[in-house]
Design a protein around this nucleic acid. Sequence first.
DNA 1: GAGCAATCTGTTCATTTGAACTTGCAAATC
DNA 2: GATTTGCAAGTTCAAATGAACAGATTGCTC
Lengths: 208, 208
Amino acid sequence: MLTERQRNVLEFIQTEQREKGVTPSTREIQSHFGLASQTSVMQYLAVLERKGFIDRHARKARALITPVQKVRITDIPIYGQIPAGMATLTEQTIEGHVSLDARSVNASKNARTFALRVRGDSMINAHILDGDIVILEDRKDVHNGDIVAALIDGETTLKRYVMEHGRPYLKAENPLYPDLTPARELRVQGVMVSLVRKQAAAQRRKRN
Amino acid sequence: MLTERQRNVLEFIQTEQREKGVTPSTREIQSHFGLASQTSVMQYLAVLERKGFIDRHARKARALITPVQKVRITDIPIYGQIPAGMATLTEQTIEGHVSLDARSVNASKNARTFALRVRGDSMINAHILDGDIVILEDRKDVHNGDIVAALIDGETTLKRYVMEHGRPYLKAENPLYPDLTPARELRVQGVMVSLVRKQAAAQRRKRN
DNA sequence: GAGCAATCTGTTCATTTGAACTTGCAAATC
DNA sequence: GATTTGCAAGTTCAAATGAACAGATTGCTC
């Protein structure tokens, strides 16, 4: 897709961006590659833009946008202990933020993304632990087998969404916990797309 | 620390940075706040820099650096399939990056942080799955029970570090895998501090 | 009242910077 | 042989942009 040279230019831009926090000007790129003419750089930029590797704000200085940073960071609010009725997700219930880039999290562009801190071991067999931060998307389409945060009979829980005989229920991934069949309604608030776990520093629990 | 007005200016800069990918020029800031003189902006920037809220590259266009992008995010290189001898961690073996903020990852400031993509199920009972990205720190102090990436007899693996009778060995968290006792040397390359998992979109595996 | 910090205006400069021509050459493609 | 693509150089512009200097107002403190 890119020639050797073109890739080098792109990499230089990305590196500068990352290290200095600012994208280089055309002349800085020029001198880095020892080119005698700034026009050469303009040509590279034109190619990179045409091929979709960068975006440019016309006539603005240092206004290159590399895909690296363009997608980059999503600030995801963590809603902590949600007792009941997450319908009212407000700023007040926000426990903190995780910042990570959309790609490393599987997040789609349009859906609203948020996070929950998991409490309890009800999803232990899905390898989701107490204290894990689960990142969810507010999506319409829920598939059979997805792990979801759902509001069931007034309480929000993280469970696996299972469709059986045309009727959905929520399955706990732990035999000690009951599956939940909605008495009235089952409202899915988010579909799990990712998980972040902080490892306890010195862990004592394992002693078997 | 900041006056109302100063904070507004800072926030505008950060918002622009985030949404457009480029920091605004002084004149853009000026017109956003309806100021008649660009000098006013220069004064704000001087204050913000003096107070440590932004960095500036002198005489460069749009060369503001906001703490948002400066501190916050750590770009963690992911080393993919490491067959043997991670002593040679070079750019070439980098599979990609995860970007997340140091706090949500438990990362200490001074230690070198990197990530590995896990392959295999040898740590399944520690709830680490095939495909998970494990974030590690290159630390000196390893505690009994820590999960570590270690170079044992020329091969890098992720295992639990267990000290028994004064001798360390590597314990797999899966009965199907053997524990590893170092024949020659056991070199810990990193201690696990965090984990990031992308959830498979539509998952078929669970069918029990 | 003097002094000071925060805020804002007005004006002018020197660079920086993106952009638009043109020309040249070599390798690949048709 | 003609055309296209990648690469490079040289020149010139106009606009964008950071910076400096002078002055003014307001409110607060000593």
